[in-house]
C-alpha cells in the first residue's frame, strides 16, 4: 500500500520487538508490543476509535455532538484526536496532577479540560465526569471503564495481532487501568491457547486512597466485573514507582523509549521471567516516553525523580 486514506487507518498493527536482553532468565524470551507507535501516541487510540465508532453505529453519538470522558491522559488524547477528525467536541475530566505534556497534547487536539482534584486520582475524575454527564444529558458519555467497545478493541485488534506475530506466547503482561487491554487480549489469547497466563501490573495506589472515607467508596471498573475479570487474570502484582523508573531506564538499553508505566510492566515481566523455567512473555509498552520528559525520568537523580513521580499520574 502506497498511502493511507486517513490517520485513523494508522491505528493498530503495532510492532512486536524482542527485548530479551533484559530478561533475567536466559530461557525466557520477552517481546514488547510498541503501542506508542499509534498516531495519537498510545494504546488508547484503539479504544478511542472503537468506542466512537460503536456509538456512531448504535446512534448514541450524533454529528457535531459533545462528548465527556474522564481520563488521566492517554484515552483523552486518543479521543481528542479521533473527535477532531470526526468533528465532535470533547471535554476531558483530567486529574490536576498529570504530566504537563498530557495536558498540552489535549490542547493540541482542541479538547476542553475540566480539572478534578489531584489527590483523588482517576477515581475523582471518574466521579466528576459522571456528575457532569448527569447534569448534561445532551453530552455523549462513552465511559471507558464501562464500555464494552474498550475490551472489544483489544479482542479484535491487539490480541489477534499478538497471536499473528508470536504464537509461542506463554505469558501476557500489561498494566491494569480500565482493565480493557488485559480482558480483550487475555480472552483472545486464552481462546487460542488456554495455557497462556495473564499478569496484571498495578501501580502503587498509595496516598490516593487516603481520600476514601469508606471502603464502599472503592471502585472496580464495570467492564472488569462484566467480563469476569477476576476469573480471567492469573496474577495481579504491584510495582513501585522507583522500580518502574529503573526499568523505564533499562528499556532504553534495548532502544525502547517508553512511558513510565512501561517500566512497571517490564519490571513485572522480569518478575514473571524469574518465576518460570521457560517461556515467551509478551508485554505492552502502552506509550512512548515523550509525554514524561518533563519528569526527568531518564536523566534526573533517581531519588528526586522517584519523589516527583510519586505525585504524578503516570499509569
Amino acid at each position: 500500500m502506497a498511502y493511507y486514506a486517513s490517520v485513523l487507518d494508522l491505528i493498530g498493527n503495532t510492532p512486536l520487538v524482542e527485548v530479551s536482553a533484559l530478561s533475567p532468565n536466559p530461557d525466557v524470551r520477552i517481546l514488547a508490543k510498541l503501542e506508542g507507535q499509534n498516531p495519537g501516541g498510545s494504546i488508547k487510540d484503539r479504544i478511542a476509535l472503537s468506542m466512537v465508532e460503536e456509538a456512531e453505529k448504535d446512534g448514541t453519538l450524533k454529528a457535531g455532538q459533545t462528548l465527556i470522558e474522564p481520563s488521566s491522559g492517554n484515552t483523552g488524547i486518543g479521543l481528542a484526536m479521533v473527535c477532531r477528525l470526526k468533528g465532535y467536541r470533547l471535554k476531558i475530566v483530567l486529574p490536576a496532577n498529570v504530566s504537563i505534556e498530557r495536558r498540552q497534547l489535549l490542547e493540541v487536539w482542541g479538547a476542553e479540560i475540566i480539572e478534578s482534584p489531584g489527590d483523588e486520582g482517576s477515581n475523582g475524575a471518574v466521579r466528576m465526569a459522571g456528575a457532569v454527564a448527569e447534569q448534561h444529558p445532551e453530552y455523549a458519555f462513552l465511559y471507558q471503564y464501562g464500555n464494552q467497545a474498550n475490551p472489544k478493541a483489544h479482542y479484535e485488534g491487539t490480541g489477534p495481532e499478538i497471536w499473528r506475530d508470536c504464537q509461542e506466547v506463554t505469558h501476557f503482561v500489561a498494566g491494569l487501568g480500565t482493565s480493557g487491554t488485559l480482558l480483550g487480549v487475555g480472552r483472545f489469547l486464552k481462546e487460542r491457547n488456554p495455557a497462556v497466563q495473564l499478569w496484571a501490573i498495578e501501580p502503587p495506589t498509595g496516598e490516593m486512597v487516603d481520600g476514601l472515607r469508606n471502603l464502599d467508596d472503592g471502585y472496580i471498573p464495570p467492564i472488569f466485573l462484566d467480563n469476569d475479570g477476576s476469573d480471567l487474570l492469573d496474577r495481579k502484582t504491584m510495582v513501585g514507582t522507583r522500580e518502574s523508573i529503573e526499568w523505564t531506564r533499562r528499556l532504553t538499553d534495548v532502544g525502547v523509549f517508553g512511558g513510565i508505566s512501561s517500566g512497571a510492566v517490564m519490571a513485572g515481566a522480569a518478575r514473571c521471567a524469574s518465576s518460570i523455567s521457560a517461556g515467551v512473555v509478551v508485554i505492552v509498552v502502552a506509550d512512548g516516553g515523550w509525554k514524561y520528559l518533563s519528569t526527568g525520568a531518564w536523566t534526573g537523580d533517581l531519588d528526586a525523580v522517584t519523589e516527583r513521580a510519586r505525585h504524578t499520574i503516570y499509569f
Binding site: 496532577n97 477515581n123 471518574v126 486512597v209 510519586r310
Partner: peptide, 10 residues
C-alpha cells in the same frame, strides 16, 4: 480504586 495512580507512597 480505578486505574491510574495518585500520589504514591513508594
Amino acid at each position: 480504586v480505578a486505574g491510574g495512580t495518585g500520589p504514591a507512597r513508594r
